[in-house]
Nucleic acid binder design. Sequence first.
DNA 1: TGCACAAATGTAACGCTTTACATTGTTTAT
DNA 2: ATAAACAATGTAAAGCGTTACATTTGTGCA
Lengths: 335, 335
Amino acid sequence: MSDATIKDVANECGLSVATVSRVLNNSANVSERSAKRVHDAIEKLGYSPNFLGRNLRKRETNVILVTMPTSEHSFYMKIVAGIQQYCQPRGYDVICASYNNSSEVEVRQMNMLFNRTVDGVILLGTSYPAEKLNKLAETYNIALCCEGVEGADVLTVVVDDEQGGYDAVKSLIKLGHRRIAFIGANDSSASSFKRKEGYLRALKDFQLPVYDELICCGTFEYEHGGEAVEKLMSLKEPPTAVFCVSDLLAISAVHKVHELGLEAGKDIAVMGFDNITMCEMMMPSVSTVEQPCKEMGELVVKKLLANISASGGEKDNKCYIVPHSIILRESTFRI
Amino acid sequence: MSDATIKDVANECGLSVATVSRVLNNSANVSERSAKRVHDAIEKLGYSPNFLGRNLRKRETNVILVTMPTSEHSFYMKIVAGIQQYCQPRGYDVICASYNNSSEVEVRQMNMLFNRTVDGVILLGTSYPAEKLNKLAETYNIALCCEGVEGADVLTVVVDDEQGGYDAVKSLIKLGHRRIAFIGANDSSASSFKRKEGYLRALKDFQLPVYDELICCGTFEYEHGGEAVEKLMSLKEPPTAVFCVSDLLAISAVHKVHELGLEAGKDIAVMGFDNITMCEMMMPSVSTVEQPCKEMGELVVKKLLANISASGGEKDNKCYIVPHSIILRESTFRI
DNA sequence: TGCACAAATGTAACGCTTTACATTGTTTAT
DNA sequence: ATAAACAATGTAAAGCGTTACATTTGTGCA
């Protein structure tokens, strides 16, 4: 079964391959009778068109690739869900590939773009520098989502990270906190850097001093959250609140707080960023800055598909900012 | 840049396309000098081979598809990580697609197999019945992982679900529990059904009575865990322990217990299945039956690739059982 | 020097589908 | 009745690489 080609179908029903192809693509100008004969033959032979041939001819694959630093993070998967939701009714397939934080693997995966295996790529984070991305965008259809790259004139969908950080810290201040710590990755991550900027601006706006010992820059790795908290709580004057640039770090922090015999949401307020599912499952549940993942996914792929269709010249390479929102849960409290 | 074809490269360097192709595939019998000329031309033109052409000719794509009911479950992603780890050094790419529990979407995704977009598929759960799978396996390279299908003679990698359930319940019994509840999906899920069988066998083995009111079959949805616990705890004689067929259900249960003002690991023991990352992050951390995800992923894809290579006849369609293990954490306790 | 053989390169068919263009058969308008 | 328009179908090229087979070039040995 099903190594049949369109030619076999044509022979089977006594029509030409062109007519069979027309039926397959339901083009105009094919008689009822022929259509039926073709369908019968397809049924009989268990024929399924070979997309390699079709795509080669059409110079398109109707497949969008989503790459991400790691697939073991539900945040990315939420975005993928949004992308899929938009693609499905439009005849596009979505495939994901995680490069496990290896830029080497990322480069390999981008080959799917170069060798025409996919029509476009959405990068949820990347190790490519801006110039490289700009160059790629000239020839191919690419987009960034949730992690922008400074200086990249590439279609991008992100929240306002700086403002998000600002709002998070502001909400902590409004709850009465004065000594607020920061736990983030290092500054080479655009989003972490910007969220820190927001943190600093909020302190400044509310005339709170910046204490260097309260600023913990490390990585996005889970462990870093706990380690930072350990350090913070051993200070002679520990913070009463901590803003983490990701929920994963926040959860790690909450955990460590508990391990230290303290209670998040009572002894120290913890705030994250992203609003991953786990925030609600934690006890205490974790306050955070929500990124509208589904909407971001839908928006970025909508724009990307538009670029793909508008194969002639003028591509949209704007940066779209989507609104974030503050979600207060049990891990924060009024002082 | 890079709409160059192999022909352009051939013209550029004054050699035939055959020679260029040989260089590209580093076949034997091509002179140093020619190789260099080809590489220079490729560099100059920014050429990247079109895989649609190549794959069409070679009748292979070197891509493996992994389908799953939902991508928002870290358990699946752990398996994918194992699959990727095995594939990467062997020149295969891995792509994932979630069908969001819609069999319609699943069917659509399987088209990638029929239309030769991928060389093989690994199904982490499926809505296909056994006969259908058997038929597919005749023509295509498919494998099941973590969720087997009764009666499907298809390459499969799973843990012994029945024994896993047995061992989980046995460990609860050893901790002194006598009234042990069961929270699972309905019996149409093979894994849930088997884990229940194991639960029942353990009760029988240790001469404990089966109480129907302690058996809660519903779905794999998060909410079901909490609802079941609510029901269980309102019984005149509530259980002292509960075995859940998945960690997600267990976590939901732990949550509800907390909401009811009780404490998991103290007032009631909760045990899950899978050992997803979240188990360790919970407070209390959740006891569970570990499935060796990475190993399962590696094994299933190893066998699948072997089948793909052995294109002639004798395919391996055995069912491989990998060992599970019991992990006791804070959510269980000695009574 | 000439022959046998190996290495390097080229030619062209093939894989599968789509589609511009050509052809045949019908219908409509004049 | 005849030309014109149209619907249905067919023919063959094109899309890009791979590879069996053919050809050319080069090497080693008698």
